[in-house]
């Protein structure tokens, strides 16, 4: 069982991206996925939305999997492996999550994964979050990503997109940066192709 972590600041489009990707991965690669939805709110919202789209969803809410719910994350991953054993789990982390802490928890307490891939979203509509004095957890999300997705490219011009992509590349020189509009579906095929390749070649 492989784990794909989708991280990104609040409202950056993680749920929309997840939905677009899982549809492509399921139909294009024949993979089956369980979605693990983490929200800091006391009531799950995104899980309801994804279930209405026909996806198999487990929810971890009222805290963040990078800290308060770290233990619940490990227990839930074990349960998913034991009961459902899917090809992959897609974890949508809360928008406040520090990715480094999630990876540290998995390293220490759940070594049975065949691989972990982190996709972090940056939000072009809120480019100012990444300039001057960016929030440490937002920078951490980008720094620990294997793939950075610059979302909402439909909302800005080419110059802003290029400036933001350059900033993201500076924060994480090892990760590919792909611009998308998750809402419109543009460039999601490319992200899905990267994920599909990773799913097939990682063991």
């Amino acid at each position: 069982m492989k784990l794909i972590i989708i991280s990104g600041f609040l409202g950056s489009g993680k749920t929309t991206l997840l939905l677009g990707l899982v549809r492509r991965l399921t139909s294009g690669n024949g993979c089956d996925f369980v979605i693990l939805e983490n929200e800091v709110g006391e009531i799950g919202i995104d899980g309801v939305f994804l279930e209405k789209q026909g996806l198999q969803v487990k929810e971890l809410y009222s805290g963040c999997v990078c800290c308060q719910l770290a233990g619940d994350l490990v227990v839930t991953l074990r349960e998913i492996k034991d009961v459902l054993d899917p090809d992959g789990v897609i974890l949508e982390a809360s928008g406040l999550a520090k990715v480094e802490s999630i990876l540290d928890t998995l390293d220490r307490y759940y070594g049975e994964l065949e691989g972990t891939m982190v996709i972090s979203l940056a939000d072009l509509e809120r480019f100012e979050l990444y300039q001057e004095e960016p929030m440490p957890f937002v920078i951490n999300q980008i720094r620990y990503a294997d793939l950075v997705v610059l979302n909402k490219t439909d909302s800005g011009d080419g110059e802003l997109t290029a400036t933001m992509a350059a900033k993201l590349a500076e924060l994480n020189p090892d990760a590919e940066v792909i611009g998308v509009s998750a809402l419109e579906g543009s460039n999601l095929d490319l992200v899905a192709e990267r994920l599909g390749t990773w799913m097939r070649t990682t063991s």
Binding site: F9, L10, G11, I45, D46, V48, F49, G95, L96
Partner: peptide, 8 residues
């Protein structure tokens, strides 16, 4: 900052 307001 509005992080996110969301609901059903």
């Amino acid at each position: 900052i509005i992080g996110h307001i969301k609901g059903i």
